[in-house]
Design a protein around this nucleic acid. Structure first.
Lengths: 230, 230
DNA sequence: CCTACCGATCGGTAGG
DNA sequence: CCTACCGATCGGTAGG
């Protein structure tokens, strides 16, 4: 979990070591993403860096450590997105959830490789690493449930089962690593904005920003502007 | 894609061969799910069946063929769930989507192992198999987009971007393989029913089956029961 | 469809 | 941090 930019009080020696670790992890993430963990040998990683295998062992104890570091960064970024909103952002549950949605999607898509690797390579993690990382996932879910509960209590959300809704939200966002392409039809910003709206809709919170939109008129025999202005 | 139950006009010889294939695939799916594809040797599969490796090679040409068969059954079941509704079920887009949701979730959860394996082991598929299976996934998405478009055209759904919404729905349901446990809090039936409701909500279709439900009352200053029980 | 085996790959390390 | 190597695993097959 060393940061990519050198920490202030690091000696030159540590900075170099940190840089080598970072570079190794970046190359490993590329290859694990492209070819899969088991189909990537340490020799391949070393080759792409123009070094040899013992270079890697000078900075990591095992191949599995590379994997654990990559996976934990993936969920850490998602968790940080959630925590960032929960601990600093004011506003009601709907506003906070909208921002969580945007940041969560952004985190997943900017850590697309890491998230993909974690989803796929779970079974290749050392048991201890798997448990640590699973715990992060559970934390994430629990915090999201809490936010949904607050929204329900405030009458902003209409959800029968907040736990299921949280899992659904977590799934629709996490899954984005499968289909999102940076060069695709939607930019990262558009994707995160639209996904955030879908999340609000899922929890029964209508934006009602434009009265024209025929949001929920379905069962009402009388035609009226269904979704009242906020 | 041989069915697990013997086809009517099969000779006893073919029935036995089909049975052996099915049993092999079932054991392989168990092990691939528990341990991962690369961490499962053919000797392990054979051992769990009390045979030896050449038994497997008498019915399959390679380990990768086992994987391809397992993966393709996974998405085939999801695709069949969707097609079943689209080709036979009457009703408007909302009713059809609700049923798609129920059957899709049911398919994912009853094929949980297969879906998980496909999601994880993509990189271990032979290129040709990967393409075939990816095409099934694209078919699924395209059909779901079409259904959402119909709902929007009929004024039943309120979605800005039906393509994104379809991917979101596909994701929230597919992801259920990650968290669902048969012995968990919700039964398969409850899960599929509630997930289906979340899908309808995501596309902006309010059930409105019970007038009591405060679906979109958000901005109303009058306090009423916030989240009434269903 | 079993016994027995081959050939290749690869994580990890000794030695310097 | 490189050269060189070991030990183990494993997909696949020959031969019967």
């Amino acid at each position: 979990m060393t940061s990519a930019t050198a920490a202030p009080m690091m000696g030159i020696r540590d900075e170099v070591a940190a840089l080598k670790r970072e570079r190794t992890l970046a190359v490993a993430a590329e290859l694990f993403y492209e070819r899969g963990y088991e189909n990537t040998s340490l020799d391949m990683i070393a080759e792409r860096m123009n070094v040899t295998k013992p270079f890697i062992y000078a900075h990591f104890t095992s191949k599995a450590e590379l994997l654990a570091e990559i996976c934990s960064r993936g969920i850490a970024s998602a968790l940080a997105a959630l925590d960032g909103v929960l601990t600093t952002m004011p506003g009601n549950a709907a506003e906070r959830l909208a921002e969580v949605g945007r940041r969560f999607v952004t985190a997943v898509l900017t850590s697309q490789r890491h998230i993909a690797i974690f989803s796929r390579e779970e079974k290749n993690l050392a048991p201890a690493d798997f448990q640590t990382i699973s715990q992060m996932r559970r934390d994430f879910d629990a915090k999201l449930v809490k936010l949904l509960d607050q929204g329900v209590a405030a009458g902003l959300f209409s959800v029968q089962d907040t736990r299921l809704a949280a899992l659904a939200i977590g799934g629709m966002v996490s899954w984005a690593y499968v289909w999102y392409r940076p060069e695709g039809r939607l930019t990262l910003e558009q994707t995160s904005e639209e996904m955030s709206k879908l999340i609000l809709s899922l929890v029964g919170n209508q934006p009602a920003k434009r009265a024209a939109k025929t949001t929920v008129a379905k069962a009402t025999p009388v035609r009226k502007k269904a979704a009242p202005k906020g």
